[in-house]
Computed example of a mutant assay.
Amino acid sequence: MNERTREYLRGRFGDHYRRSDIALPPAASAREWGFIPFTAGPGTTMVRHKALLDLGDLSAFLVDTCPRHVYFSAGQYDDPGTHSMEDKGWRGSDLVFDLDSDHLPNVDPETDTYAEMLSTCKDALLRLLDFLHGDFGFDPERTSVVFSGSRGYHVHVREDDVRTLDRDARREIVEYVIGEGIDDIDQLTRVETVAGMGTKNPVEKRILKTEGGWGRRVHDRLVSVTESVQAAERSDAVEQLRAFDGIGEKGAGKLYRTMTERSEEIANGNLDAGKFIHRLAQRLFERAVDEESVPIDEPVTTDVNRLIRLPGSLHGGSGLLVTPLAHEEIEAFDPLVDAVPSTFEDAEITIESKTEQAVQLGGKRHNIQAGNDTVQESVGVFLMARGRAEKAPE
């Protein structure tokens, strides 16, 4: 980014902040603040260990400083402005989750478009919220969701019970969400002893824990497969069951018979209802972890001193708005439309692009010519912030 581009962006960021009213996070004065200015050179300079008192009025600070990025801490402290972490006097931290689209296992940044990557990331976000609300029981009213302004989403849980969790406890939450440390279906079962038939000794049965968590997820899949098998012709059902690893034609036939004759026991979570049910449940568990786990950024969640991007600020690497979202807004939210700042929508600017390129922004496809090209300002800001164009001389 050359000096002309940097000064242009800095000035327009300041114009945006003059028109904005950014809400402070809860307990803002107890948090550490940091920012990255628009500095010359290829690197960035993080200014941190600031208290809100050091910054003064937040709106005035943003207008005067025009930072490239703005952050506040997940942690709350007695003295947030001191430089020593040990001397800050930690009181507790929000539980924060970070989802980056280019870190997701089913995303290829080389072939997927930016819009496709963000759509995949939203799917992961919805799965994460299902864990937080369904499995952990966190209150949606105390769980805030924020589009990061670039690659994905942040989630802040501000429950009293989680504030004082240490790194190890937070790591356990991460491991649960990503499905780590659970590799066998028997870890999701309990053993019940029932009376045997006639003079037989009591029998132990493995019962899937269906009340919640990963057990519920596997149970839902097992019941769904059972219902599908019952609704199909025998030959089709057997073929469907043979698709699972480790289940051949003979095993599929036995499974079909169990599922049609003992479906109530399966619905009750009995993995010993018939031969091969346990094996099928193991395969379904593996699929559940593969398809429903959420690859969150572990260091963000486990770091009680983490700085996280300020909702309502601009992301200096995209020019998009770091957008807080109500839960009912998430499904319909389109970051490449809804996070485009209105400040940059009404004017055109001329940029320099080394290559021809295309940008999907504001609900339109913008084809950029190599050399000088006049574009909507939001498109120009986006490309300049991402290092894909420079501001053309006036």
Rank of each mutant, 00 (worst) to 15 (best):
I36H: 03
A392N: 02
G253K: 13
T39F: 11
S29G: 01
G274M: 12
F244S: 10
Y153E: 07
L383K: 12
S148Y: 05
A288T: 15
G89F: 03
Y114A: 02
V63Y: 01
A385T: 13
V223S: 07
D130E: 14
W90T: 00
N305L: 05
V162R: 09
G152I: 11
V304Y: 00
S224D: 15
P25I: 03
R386M: 10
A281E: 00
F382V: 10
L62E: 00
L129R: 13
S263E: 10
K88H: 08
H327R: 06
G371V: 07
K200M: 05
G317V: 05
A358D: 01
D161E: 15
R170E: 01
W214L: 00
L284S: 03
Y8I: 02
Q282A: 12
Q230A: 01
S378K: 07
G215K: 04
G215L: 01
R68C: 00
G181Y: 14
E175Q: 13
A74G: 15
D272E: 14
V381K: 01
G317C: 07
A115K: 12
D94S: 04
K275W: 02
C66M: 06
H154K: 14
T374H: 05
A115W: 10
D108V: 11
E233L: 07
A23R: 15
D220R: 13
K205C: 01
G41Y: 05
A115V: 14
H103F: 02
A267V: 08
A339R: 10
G41N: 03
I308G: 05
I308A: 04
F13V: 10
T65Y: 02
T323W: 00
A332T: 06
L241M: 01
V229H: 09
D94M: 08
L310E: 01
R309F: 03
N270Y: 10
R19K: 12
F344D: 06
A28L: 14
M46G: 02
F131H: 06
D334L: 07
H16Q: 11
L118Q: 03
T301N: 02
T302P: 06
R242H: 00
S59M: 02
A326H: 05
Q376F: 09
D303W: 07
D98I: 08
T189G: 03
D108K: 05
K354T: 09
F285P: 04
T210F: 01
P67L: 11
F244M: 07
D98T: 08
R19D: 01
G137V: 13
T199S: 13
E3D: 02
H83K: 13
D236V: 12
S263C: 02
D54N: 15
T143W: 12
D166C: 10
L321A: 02
L361A: 05
S235T: 11
D139M: 11
H219K: 03
A74N: 05
T39C: 14
N106H: 15
E328D: 15
R283Y: 10
D186A: 10
L118H: 11
F35I: 03
T210C: 05
G274E: 13
P341Y: 08
E298V: 06
V146S: 06
S235R: 11
R388K: 14
L383A: 06
G34C: 03
